[in-house]
Computed example of a mutant assay.
Amino acid sequence: MESALDYHSAQALLAWQIELGATDAICETPVNRYELQARLPKMVSPAAAEPVKPKDVDPVAVARQMAKDAVDLGGLHRALGQFEHCDLKKGARSLVFADGQPGARVMVVGEAPGRDEDIAGKPFVGRAGQLLDRMLAAIGLSRQENVYITNVLPWRPPQNRDPLPVEVAMMGPFLERHIELAKPDLLIAMGNISCEALLGKRGITRLRGTWGEALGTPVMPMFHPAYLLRQPTQKRAAWADLLEIKARLLAG
C-alpha cells in the first residue's frame, strides 16, 4: 500500500533531491524521446517570396512623353540626349540632332547618320551631304540660309546598316515633335527609311516625285544622295523633283 506524502514532506523531499544535484523530473515510466520527436508537428517553412519583376517599359510611350514635354528645339535636343532606351546610343560617338536654319521653309529628313556624320555631330556632311548641298544650290537653297536638316535616327547604326523598324518607331515621336517645333512649309523625305517614317510607305522609286503629306505638311519623297552617288543615271529624276519643290515654294 502506497503511503501518501503530505505537502510539507513532499516539498522537503524535493529540496533534498535538488541539493543532491537533481536537475530534471522524471516519470515512473521511461519516455522514448525518439517516438516523441516523431509525433511532434513538423515546422513548415514559410514560402519564399517571389521576386518582384520590374514593370515592362514601353520605349515608344517614354519617347512620346519626353518629346511632348519639349517646348522648343533646345529642349528636344536635351530630351534626346536623356533618352536611354535606344541601344544605338551606346555605340555611337555623337548625337546627330540637326543642321541648318531652324524655322526655314524647307526641312530635309534623312535616314540615319553615317561615319562622317557621327564624327562631326551633324547630318549630311560626307560625300552624300556634299551632293545634297549642290542639289539644293541648284534651286537657290542652302543650309546656311533657308534649309533645315535632320534625320529619322539621331545615332549611327553599326556598320551603317539600315535602321530597324523598332528603331524607327522608337524615334518617331521625337521626329514628329521636331517637325512641329521647326514648322517648315514643306518636307523633303530622302530615301526609303524617311518615307516610311513620314508617310508610312516604302518604295522610293514609286513614291518619288509625288507629293504626300505628314503632320499637315507637304512631303516630297526623293532619292537619297548616297543612292545617287551609286546610280548617277537617277540624277535626272532627282532634278525633276527639285524643280517640283522650287515651283511649290514659288507658289507660296
Rank of each mutant, 00 (worst) to 15 (best):
M135N: 06
S94N: 14
R127V: 04
L132N: 07
L131H: 12
G110Y: 07
P113T: 10
V125T: 12
K89T: 03
I119W: 13
I119C: 04
G114E: 03
R105E: 14
V96G: 06
P102A: 11
G103V: 09
L95N: 05
R127D: 11
K122Y: 13
F97E: 04
E117N: 04
R127E: 12
R105M: 08
M107I: 02
G129S: 12
V96F: 08
G110V: 03
R127A: 13
D133Q: 09
P102M: 11
A92R: 04
D99G: 03
V108I: 14
L131M: 14
D116K: 14
M135P: 02
P102R: 12
L95R: 12
M107S: 13
L95K: 08
E117F: 04
Q130G: 13
R115K: 14
Q101S: 03
Q101A: 08
P102I: 07
P123E: 07
V108H: 13
E111A: 15
M107R: 15
A120L: 14
E111G: 09
M135K: 08
V106W: 05
P113Y: 09
A112C: 14
G129N: 11
G91P: 07
K89P: 03
E111C: 12
G103N: 13
V106C: 12
D133L: 01
E117M: 05
A98T: 01
V125A: 07
F97T: 05
F97A: 02
V125R: 07
P102C: 06
R105H: 01
G110I: 05
Q130V: 00
G114I: 01
G100A: 09
A104N: 09
F124Q: 03
R93G: 01
R127S: 06
E117L: 05
D116Y: 12
K90N: 10
G126C: 01
A128T: 06
R93F: 00
G100H: 11
A128L: 01
V106P: 14
G100K: 11
A92G: 01
R93T: 01
A128W: 08
M107V: 00
Q130T: 06
R93H: 12
E117S: 05
V106Y: 06
V125S: 08
D99H: 11
K90Q: 15
G103M: 13
I119R: 14
E117R: 05
D133V: 01
F97D: 02
K122A: 09
G121N: 08
G91M: 09
K90F: 02
G129H: 11
G103A: 13
G121F: 05
S94F: 05
V96H: 03
A112I: 08
G129L: 07
R93C: 04
F97P: 02
G100P: 13
E111P: 00
E117G: 04
G126T: 01
V125Y: 08
P123K: 05
I119Q: 14
V108G: 10
G100C: 09
A104F: 02
Q130M: 13
R134C: 03
Q101W: 02
